[in-house]
Write a protein that binds this DNA or RNA. Sequence first.
DNA 1: CCCATCGACCCATGAACACT
DNA 2: AGTGTTCATGGGTCGATGGG
Length: 266
Amino acid sequence: MEDKGRESDHLMLITPERVFYAGLLGRPRKRTPGCCHIYVAVKGSLHLTIDDVHTSDELIVTLPNQRHSIASDYRTAISVTLEPESMPDGVIEALAERLRGPDKALYARKILAAYALLRQRRYGDITTAEFDEMCFGEALARRELDPRVTRAVARIERFSGEPVTADTCAAEAGLSASRFLHLFKEETGISFRSFRAWKRARHLLHFANQDLNLAHLAQDIGYPDSTHFSHSIRRFYGLKPRAIFVGSRDLAIYRSTETVRLAEAS
DNA sequence: CCCATCGACCCATGAACACT
DNA sequence: AGTGTTCATGGGTCGATGGG
C-alpha cells in the first residue's frame, strides 16, 4: 500500500496465557476461537456480528468459543486475548461485564495506552500478572490446575510434532483414560480434544510473520495433514491460513521468556 | 504446489452406574 | 470423595479427489 517503507506499527506479544495483538483483522468470516477476545478500535469503530445481530463499538468483548465475526473501520485494530483455563470460572464473564459497563471508555484508553507502551518498549519478558496490570489495571485471578492436568497441558503445549493423545496423558497421570478425560474437563472447563485443537491452532501465531510452507508447518505443530490444518484454522480464526500469513508480513512478534522456555524444552 | 470439499471411519465425549 | 466401567453418539480425523 502507500504505507510501504514506513516502519510497521503492527505487533503481537504472545505469552502462554495472553496475547496482545495490534494489526490487521482481515475480513474474517465466522470464527470460534477458544479464547476470550477483547477488541479495541484504534480509530473509527469495530463491527461485531453474532447470530446475524450486528453491533458497533470502540470496545467489544467476546467469550471463549463464542461464534462471531469482527470487522474494523481502520486498518489497524487491537485484540487482547485471554486463555480461559488460566483463570477460575466466572472471572472472564465478570471482566466482560466490567469492560462493557460504564467504564468502557476508560478501559479502551487503558488498552490503547498499553499499545503505545508496547510500541516503544519491546517487552519480551512479561508475566501474566504484568500483562493484566498493563491492560486492565489489575492482575486477574489465576486458576490452580490439578498437577496431573498441568502436566498434560504442558505436554500439549510442547508441540514437538509427536501426537499427544488422551491415552498417553492418562498414562503419565497414572489414571485411566476415561478418568483422565473427566478430570481434564472438570479442571479446565473444556474437553481434552477441543483444548488440544485450540492450542494447536493458537500455536500458529508464533510463525505468522514467517514465509513458510504451510504443509510442513502443519506437520510441525502436530496436524496430521494440511487438509485438517486448513479446516481447523478457518474454524478458529475465520481466515484461511494463507490469508493470515499474507496479512502478517510486517508483524513484529514478541514472546514472553516463559513461552520461549516452553518451546525450548521440547 | 496450495487449498477446499466430501465421505467414511473411529475415537473422545458425556451420562449412568459401580467400586473403594 | 475419588476413581473406573460401559456404551451410544457426534464430531474430529484422515484419505481421496478436484480446482486454482
